[in-house]
Design a protein around this nucleic acid. Structure first.
Lengths: 196, 196
DNA sequence: TTATAATAGCTAAGTTACACAGCTAGCTTG
DNA sequence: CAAGCTAGCTGTGTAACTTAGCTATTATAA
């Protein structure tokens, strides 16, 4: 308030710190007994931390693949999404947006870039002319295909510690976690608006 | 080039699509037998998909907490980081950057905002005056603390499907996965520059 | 049949979360 | 004390989003 910045170029020397007296009494961030170890949520916090670190790296890997074929991370994701959805249905902008939980306009813009790069084709839907039907070009399919050997090597290293039963358990847990995630989000929304 | 935009308002009608003839022959993205089910990487892809969805939601939850105490997601993360690291050491900008794998300048800027919000204090380090020592203000600690009841409820729902042994297994796997992640990233980097 | 909603997509204009290059202040060492 | 290192800062750029609001088309109700 009283302090203006920009007046003096060199910042005032900071006062020396007092020693950190820290009462480490974090409050618990979970209460289910299954998730506490020795009454502490330390392991749980560590799990969250690791999970975040893990997928941040997962995204880094994805960005690497993306770069290899000359697109950005989200564009790569959209290419794969169009490829997957396209196997069973006509792919609209809206379908991509919903599947990736992105806004329609954002998909429009990024798909537009992919079109001008020659990686995606837009076709009108004869039955509903508001819709556009998205598909990969042969070029896009080729680029995706040439990534596969790299992906195999990288994934084999990345997931090299998992046993078969680890894999199956992880697969199951992730599925369950994703499902309960919407409930958690809804609860948070309720708590942060209704209550508080 | 030849095409100007803005000249015609209505875009040319798109040609109707050909039906999607899709050869679904995706190439495998893993080769370790432990990660294949019936010779297919479908389950593996689904796992990756779920993992990404899971942490995207985890981040949404985090953003929700952040909003409740009036900061952005990354600022909330930095507050928690300063709190955790501060319990055992003097926290520098660099320490936060390394722990969260962010660039130093980014931490500088965001911490600066937290300082002007009155949530973080910067103090000079008497033993090395290049360093600044970061700590939470009482206000910040109070805001974090008032979040805990919400977090407990949300996390109990979010992770309500995990049994104790699930939790422990997940914790172990995540730890392993995070470790091998650096190797995977290094391999990818090698493959995408050295080779290819 | 005409209003009138909906719906699909698009354009424009932000915002947030980052990174990198390059700078200065302070430390260290020959 | 000059060279070189390190911590932090400033400035600038980019990727990844969002919301508001528009148009074209389709569905619906009066």
């Amino acid at each position: 308030m009283a302090r203006k910045q920009g007046v003096k170029r060199k910042p005032a020397r900071l006062a020396p710190t007092r020693s950190p007296a820290h009462t480490p009494a974090h409050e618990l961030t979970v209460s289910r007994e299954e998730l506490l170890v020795g009454g502490s949520d330390r392991e749980f916090r560590a799990l969250i931390h690791d999970a975040l670190a893990f997928t941040s790296r997962l995204e880094a890997v994805r960005d690497g693949y993306a770069k290899m074929i000359g697109v950005t991370g989200i564009q790569y994701t959209m290419l794969v999404c169009i490829s997957v959805l396209g196997a069973s249905q006509s792919v609209t902008v809206k379908a991509v947006a919903e599947h990736l939980k992105l806004s329609g306009p954002f998909v429009t813009v990024e798909v537009g870039k992919l079109v001008s790069m020659g990686l995606v084709e837009k076709a009108g839907d004869p039955s509903d002319r508001r819709k556009v039907s998205l598909s990969l070009t042969d070029e896009a399919r080729a680029r995706l295909a040439e990534l596969a050997p790299t992906q195999r090597q990288v994934n084999d290293v990345h997931f090299g510690t998992l046993t078969k039963s680890d894999f199956l358990a992880l697969r199951r847990m992730m599925g369950e976690l994703v499902e309960s995630t919407d409930n958690a989000l809804a609860l948070l929304n309720y708590l942060s608006t209704g209550a508080d």
